[in-house]
């Protein structure tokens, strides 16, 4: 345990984890699977944080990535260069580095304290604000860099004739993009977005590095206390991740079919 402790101490950068694992939260279990059952609420509360972080990051990624992709296709000059360079930097750096950078070197002061999110059927979920903000910022900007590529590809896949026909009817360039190119491109970006969704969901686990009490961090806090149940704990949270990815993939598959253009491939 000493080598591990040192490594994780370093990984956590000496930051107090703000996890709030009260000793009372963990009861002595009859079996190791019983240990999971007794602490399922605690872990699932972490899953709520995971989902919250995923949603926030994806939303931020969309808000920044969508205009960025549009600029890469239709923009010009320095703006496009800036967007492309930022994209290459964000896509070329590990999300782990981005997250610790956001946490320790955020350009804006991170909010402190924590908020309690009520969730039906679960104990109140404490979310450390500074870690959550840094994680959402890091995951969100990185996702923006990927989403911009999804939208860029989708925009470019719309035939140039569509733009020409729209202009020929008398629409302005902006009007043509808005009414003809975008609606088609957005539909085509659903599969890419599906990929991005699961990538962000899985990468929320790396917020462990900055001590955010999402599900993986909580699993760690549990199994260091009950070392005989380690395998059960990590398998359980893996299952939770798996179910979350399958569920979101199914939902997005449904959306893809629901909004497909009849007779066409989209």
């Amino acid at each position: 345990m000493t080598a591990l402790g040192a490594a994780l101490g370093a990984a956590l950068g000496g930051i107090e984890t703000a996890v709030g694992v009260g000793a009372g939260a963990i009861q002595a279990p009859p079996t190791d699977w019983g240990f999971i059952v007794e602490n399922a609420d605690y872990l699932l509360a972490g899953a709520v944080v995971t989902v919250l972080l995923t949603a926030t990051s994806l939303l931020l990624g969309f808000l920044a990535g969508f205009p960025a992709g549009t600029v890469e296709v239709y923009g010009g000059g320095w703006l496009r260069r800036v967007v492309r360079t930022a994209g290459v930097l964000l896509r070329g750096t590990p999300i782990l580095v981005i997250l610790v950078f956001a946490f320790f070197a955020a350009p804006v002061p991170l909010p402190s304290g924590s908020v309690t999110v009520p969730f039906p059927g679960l104990p109140p979920v404490d979310v450390g604000l500074s870690a959550f903000t840094a994680a959402a910022l890091g995951l969100g900007l990185r996702s923006a860099a990927y989403q911009s590529q999804i939208f860029r590809g989708a925009l470019q896949s719309v035939d140039a004739g569509q733009m020409e026909a729209a202009r020929a009817v008398g629409l302005s360039k902006l009007g043509a993009i808005r009414h003809v190119v975008l609606p088609q491109a957005l539909r085509r970006s659903i599969p890419g977005f599906q990929n991005e969704f699961t990538i962000v969901l899985k990468d929320t686990s790396i917020a462990f590095a900055i001590g955010l009490a999402e599900i993986l961090t909580r699993s760690y806090d549990l199994f260091v206390q009950q070392t005989t149940a380690t395998l059960e704990v990590v398998l359980f949270i893996s299952l939770v991740y798996f179910l979350l990815t399958v569920f979101t993939n199914r939902t997005l598959d449904y959306l893809d079919r629901r909004y497909a253009i009849p007779g066409g491939k989209g």
Partner: peptide, 30 residues
């Protein structure tokens, strides 16, 4: 372009719109 209509070799119907909506797009937006 409102006064000069054009019909294309590769047709270029708006793929995401019905036949009727293809016609109404310009009527409504232009």
């Amino acid at each position: 372009r409102r006064r000069v209509g054009m019909v294309f070799q590769d047709i270029n119907l708006f793929a995401h719109l019905t036949a009727r909506e293809n016609v109404t797009l310009g009527l409504r937006r232009v």
